[in-house]
Amino acid sequence: MSESIAVCVDPSNEQMLKAWDGEDGALWAKRAQRINDGVAAYREAFFAAAGIQSTDRVLDVGCGAGQTTRDAARQATDGSALGVDLSSAMLGLARRLADEERVPNVAFKQVDAQVHPFPEADFDVVISRHGSMFFGTPLTAFTNLARATRPGGRLVLLTWQPLRLNEWITTFRTIFAAGREVPSSNLALSDPLETEQLLTSAGYTDVELTAVNKPMYFGRDVDDAAEFIVEQHGGRLGDLAEATRAKVIEDLRADLAEHQTGRGVFYDSAAWLVEARRP
């Protein structure tokens, strides 16, 4: 794991830095392979839309442990891929994996993409797999990314559709609420009209959103999936009585059992494939 460095962030992203360069980032680094496996069904559509050419320079926003950055670099054989994220733990893992997998044309930086001074018109393709939904001030962030995209360059995002269409989120939120109020805040970039208006205002054009629905993988079996999900959501159980915590785990395992298949535990998910161009 790499050591954290001082990162210049927009004030609106300070809490994100605290989370992603803290416990959340450490957990995601620990579970990087499971997280990649979870959304693997989206990979083909995502990279087909990105259309990365051999000489392209690619920017991967919110790259995490760098799977999509390394995949992009492999396609840009005579170009390069830069992955940026707030998590020093995940970036440390990304660098190690790039070395182990011998991907030479890839680099990683710990920066806030909302305000980082990327070279102007430097990237042919900007991609983000579920990493562009966390900006404190989205218009500022996407305006900065548009400035860094060359004329004619492309933006390709994978974002979640509304909560009601994502079985996995609504199910786990309800179970771990344990009878308390279920968090109802919607997901950033989940509204098509708002997303189109945002990207257009930021300097992109030809914005298109395509609905993509894929099953999400959570584990080999109930035991494996339960361990992973409790690790992610268990913090919500800390103030509950022991009997209530036990009931939550029991309810979770019962629901996971209903989603067990011969290939593992899967839940329905729904994403937007967002494409835009820099004029």
Rank of each mutant, 00 (worst) to 15 (best):
C8L: 11
E3F: 00
E44F: 04
D78E: 15
E44W: 03
S80V: 05
T200I: 05
G179V: 03
P183G: 02
I169S: 09
T68A: 14
Q260W: 06
L237Y: 07
D239M: 09
Y267F: 15
V207F: 00
Q53N: 12
R173A: 11
D251E: 15
L155Q: 00
A270M: 02
M133Y: 06
A211P: 02
D60G: 12
D268F: 00
G83L: 10
T69M: 08
R43M: 04
D239S: 13
L155D: 03
A73G: 06
V274L: 02
E208H: 05
R154Y: 01
A121P: 00
G264F: 02
D56I: 02
F118D: 08
G235S: 08
N186P: 12
H259C: 07
A254K: 15
T174M: 01
I5W: 00
W168N: 06
E194I: 00
W168S: 13
G38Q: 15
W160N: 12
D191N: 15
A6I: 09
L82G: 04
G83P: 11
N36W: 10
V106Q: 10
P279C: 01
L145R: 03
L193R: 13
E231L: 14
R220M: 02
S184E: 11
T159Q: 06
L91N: 06
R277W: 00
G62N: 05
E242R: 13
W28T: 02
V7K: 07
G238T: 12
Q53T: 11
Q260G: 01
A32V: 03
S185K: 14
N144D: 02
R147P: 03
L97T: 15
P162T: 11
A76E: 15
I35G: 03
R96I: 06
R70C: 07
R277M: 09
G51F: 07
A49M: 06
Q161W: 06
V9N: 06
L158P: 04
A276Q: 01
T140G: 09
C8D: 15
Q15F: 08
S4N: 07
R173F: 14
K18E: 14
F142W: 10
Q15V: 11
F46L: 12
T170C: 05
E120I: 06
L145H: 01
L97S: 13
G25W: 01
V156H: 05
A72Q: 11
L198E: 03
G219E: 02
D37C: 09
F218W: 12
A178E: 05
L139M: 06
A76C: 09
K18T: 13
E258C: 13
R236W: 14
F123H: 12
A72K: 11
A178M: 08
L199C: 00
P138N: 04
A50E: 08
V182A: 01
P104T: 05
A225I: 07
A49T: 00
A45W: 05
V126L: 08
D191C: 08
T171K: 02
V248D: 08
M1G: 14
L240T: 05
E227P: 03
F218V: 00
G62Y: 09
V222D: 07
L252M: 09
E231F: 10
